[in-house]
């Protein structure tokens, strides 16, 4: 084996502007490629939403709304939010698995921003939200779901939900940095996801619930996003819930992203 690896004068690499953005996007690309090559990692955003939809619509539809068709209209816009949050959860679990492998060491020994690998993973997982949205809306339409507001409304609902999930994913990233095993990350994340997504008017009207639960619904940010999603897809005043959702999303990311990055650096 003969090598001429170094024969050329080493072109000293100069830092270029917007490094963090460029490096994060390059790493996000890596993450997307990996996801698309291991389709089994997409089960939670493809098959799982369909299962949820079938179970709830056919099990509870008749009892809650009188018919499965009417119930589907009510449950789908809200369940989109739940499915998206479950999709976001995987970011933390995957990162926890990934970081202990040597490849993150290599990234950290490169002259790139310390948080670039973390940002890359979080951005790359946006592909999971897109897949989850497509399978939810596609299958929902097959079952008979019809949006009442047109394409723009549906698009707005999807984008809002994705943005919210993206912001919340930093909570799961923090868990991924703090908990020791991927299993623990998952357990911890479900502890957060269940009360947040089921403690809503997703499956039943708020008025039928006991007072203490209605109080929870009033403060639960996920309830705001579900409200917004319903309004954007089915009609009704959307402004209030949309603004509340955006405010929550920004608040969550402002608190948890720095915490997650700090925890990541400490672990590194």
């Amino acid at each position: 084996m003969t090598l001429t690896v170094h024969k050329q004068a080493p072109a000293r690499l100069q830092p270029r502007p917007f490094a963090l953005v460029r490096h994060s996007l390059a790493l996000a690309g890596r993450s997307v490629t990996k996801t698309l090559r291991t389709p089994e990692q997409l089960l939670d955003v493809t098959v799982q939403p369909l299962m949820f939809l079938v179970i709830f619509v056919f099990l509870l539809g008749g009892a809650v709304s009188g018919s499965t068709g009417a119930y589907l209209q009510l449950v789908l816009p809200a369940m989109l939010v739940q499915v998206m949050l479950i999709a976001a959860m995987a970011t933390g679990v995957n990162l926890s698995t990934d970081i202990d492998k040597g490849v993150f060491d290599r990234f950290r020994a490169l002259p790139i921003g310390r948080s670039a690998p973390l940002l890359g993973s979080v951005l790359g997982d946006v592909i999971r939200y897109v897949v989850a949205t497509a399978s939810m809306l596609g299958f929902g339409t097959l079952l008979g779901f019809r949006a009442q507001t047109g394409l723009l409304g549906v698009l707005a609902a999807c984008l809002l939900t994705m943005f919210f999930a993206f912001c919340v994913s930093w909570v799961f990233v923090l868990f991924g940095m703090v908990a020791r095993t991927p299993g623990a990350v998952q357990g911890l994340s479900f502890l957060v996801i269940f009360p947040l997504t089921f403690g809503t008017s997703m499956t039943a009207p708020k008025g039928t619930m006991p007072g203490w639960l209605q109080v929870w619904l009033n403060v639960n940010p996920v309830e705001r996003v579900m409200d917004a999603s319903r309004a954007l897809m089915l009609g009704g005043p959307a402004g209030g819930p949309v603004l509340a959702s955006l405010a929550w999303a920004l608040g969550i990311v402002a608190v948890f992203a720095p915490l997650a990055v700090r925890a990541y650096r400490r672990r590194a």
Binding site: L13, H23, A26, G29, R30, R106, L110
Partner: peptide, 9 residues
């Protein structure tokens, strides 16, 4: 290629 991109090539 990824590493080269991260090195700003």
């Amino acid at each position: 290629v990824l590493i080269a991109r991260l090195l700003d090539l």
